[in-house]
Nucleic acid binder design. Structure first.
Lengths: 217, 217
DNA sequence: ATTGTTCTTGAATTCGGATTCAAAGAATTC
DNA sequence: GAATTCTTTGAATCCGAATTCAAGAACAAT
């Protein structure tokens, strides 16, 4: 009844299963729940990952990388700094309160306060996102398109902070804050910080290159 | 060996114990761990709170109220809008990565995505904090001290969002972001939004009316 | 097909925590 | 200080989940 794959692939399957399980049950997810998501028994999971914590860590790491890569991909090919800025802002926010990527990250906020490992992971993600914005801002400033009201570091830190916070708000299903409203709120700040009008219609013309995540069973 | 108090007081003790236990173990804290914090056995806890979830909910509610009240108290007696704004910003951030109040709130971010109750709690806290800022901004604008670059709602939402996010960053012990840095980052935004210089020395002259929370055993 | 390796199951065991409750301790009242 | 009520303990029990492992299934190589 079993059909062995390569060790690496199997572990990847488990990482994916763990990701789904954590979305449902949080960081204190049970081994059985992961096994169920994987369509296996707990013993099989343990065969590949003797320690559940390692699996959860890998799953979260993978989730973070996927999120970050998605953002990079969202602006690849775009050259206009204003467009890059707006698209990046939009890609940092969850589509809705069911958005898998952001959901997983939100689970880690509390864990980071208690675990140095998760703290390091989240901090590194934050820093990379800040750097991402800095590149956009600096290039825009160099082209004379943006006139920065503060250092690019300050503005970038604030932009990522705003994304994070509105992500949390949306996960908590705030009735007045959806993807569109949150984008506008952050862009309002970005306008002040860059002295650029940052027209939002740039977004709609592109369509959402950010793909909606599929419903999980 | 037991020394009965009034029912209400005893429950308050348990709420406090639950708060401490959650700071150590997160929202998935065990009944025994709460009992230990209370210096009781699990049976005694169950006598007052037959359902642990109710106790945790009360504890988080209490934590939120305490946090909010603290912020209100921080600006009571202050009249200068600029001073009120800066002090409010500072009071929304944790003192350091051990700050109890913010720590507890961060634990709830993940839970809110899965629980409607915690979602409602966090949303209500957010909205109240937004309203708090709106009052300050509007009164400053009415006095001609502030010239708002966006609606007071937009600015207030962003200010609270920034606090939240930097709270999370600090809880994750970001090495470059402490209370002082985070305050400056948010104030940088507030300056753009209010067209007011918002001198930070206003803070130091007051001393911190925000009391440092005591080390817990 | 046979052999050997990899993978998975299912049952047994163990572990930890939740729950229950009779008995006893501690305050209150009179 | 006796009676009453409230509170806590500690032991027993229950339950779910983690862990272990022998046995068997699935595949690869030959």
């Amino acid at each position: 009844m079993a059909r062995p794959k390569r060790r690496v692939e199997r572990r990847a399957d488990l990482v994916e299963a763990a990701r789904r399980a954590m979305l449902q049950h949080g960081t204190s997810v049970r081994l059985n729940q992961v096994a169920e998501q994987a369509g296996l028994t707990s013993g099989a999971v343990l065969y590949h990952y003797p320690d559940l914590q390692d699996l959860l860590l890998d799953a979260n790491r993978a989730g973070m990388e996927r999120f970050y890569d998605g953002r990079l991909r969202a602006i690849e090919g775009l050259n206009d700094p204003a467009q890059r800025l707006i698209v990046t802002i939009a890609s940092g926010l969850p589509i809705d309160s069911d958005d898998d990527g952001v959901r997983l990250l939100c689970e880690l906020g509390g864990a980071a306060a208690r675990s140095t490992v998760y703290a390091a992971l989240l901090t590194s993600l934050y820093d990379r996102q800040v750097a991402m914005y800095q590149v956009i801002l600096e290039s825009g400033a160099a082209q004379g398109v943006f006139v920065l009201a503060d250092s690019s570091l300050t503005i970038s830190r604030n932009l990522v902070a705003l994304e994070d916070a509105y992500g949390y708000r949306m996960m908590a299903r705030h009735s007045n804050i959806d993807h569109d409203v949150a984008t506008r709120l952050i862009v309002d700040y970005a306008r002040l910080a860059t002295a650029h009008p940052l027209p939002l219609d740039i977004l709609t013309t592109i369509g959402n290159s950010t793909q909606k995540n599929v419903k999980q069973t």
